[in-house]
Amino acid sequence: MLCINNTFTDAYFNIAAEEYLLKNFSDDIFMVWQNEPSIILGKHQDVWAEVNIDFVRDKHIKVVRRYSGGGAVYHDLGNINVTFIERSNNLDFDKYTNLTLDILSRMGVNAQADKRRGLNIDGLKISGSAQSIHKNRVMYHATLLYSSNLEYLTTSLESHNEQPENNSNIQSKIYVRSVKSPVTNISQHLANPLAIEDLKALILNDFIDNNSENKQYKFTEEDIKAISLLKDAKYATEVWNFNEASHR
Rank of each mutant, 00 (worst) to 15 (best):
E36Q: 12
E36T: 12
I39N: 03
I40D: 00
L41C: 04
L41F: 03
G42I: 05
K43D: 01
K43N: 06
K43W: 09
K43T: 04
H44F: 13
D46K: 06
W48D: 06
W48E: 05
N52H: 07
N52Q: 02
D54V: 03
F55H: 11
V56T: 12
V56K: 08
V56I: 15
R57N: 15
D58K: 15
K59S: 08
H60P: 01
I61N: 06
K62T: 11
K62Q: 15
V63P: 07
R65F: 07
R65G: 05
R65H: 05
R65S: 03
R66K: 01
Y67K: 14
Y67S: 12
Y67F: 15
Y67N: 10
Y67C: 10
S68W: 11
G69A: 11
G69S: 10
G70E: 08
G71Y: 02
A72N: 08
V73S: 12
H75F: 14
H75S: 15
H75D: 15
D76G: 12
L77D: 05
L77C: 09
N79F: 01
I80E: 06
N81R: 11
N81W: 06
T83F: 01
F84N: 10
F84C: 07
I85L: 07
E86S: 14
E86I: 02
E86C: 04
N89P: 00
N89I: 13
N90S: 12
L91V: 04
D92A: 12
T97S: 13
T97F: 02
T97D: 04
N98F: 01
N98C: 00
T100R: 09
T100K: 14
D102G: 03
L104F: 08
L104G: 00
L104P: 02
S105H: 14
R106V: 06
G108P: 00
G108W: 00
V109D: 03
V109H: 02
V109S: 01
A111G: 08
A111P: 10
Q112W: 05
A113T: 13
A113W: 03
D114W: 06
K115V: 14
G118K: 10
G118M: 08
L119V: 11
L119C: 10
N120H: 15
I121Q: 05
I121G: 09
I121M: 05
I121A: 08
D122S: 15
D122V: 11
L124D: 06
K125M: 09
K125H: 10
I126F: 08
I126N: 05
I126C: 10
S127L: 11
S129D: 03
S129C: 10
A130I: 02
Q131N: 12
Q131D: 04
S132I: 01
K135F: 00
K135C: 00
R137N: 08
V138Q: 13
M139C: 10
M139A: 13
Y140L: 11
Y140S: 13
H141Y: 14
A142W: 09
A142F: 07
A142P: 09
L144V: 07
L144A: 04
L145I: 13
S147E: 14
S147Q: 14
L150D: 02
E151A: 11
E151L: 12
L153S: 01
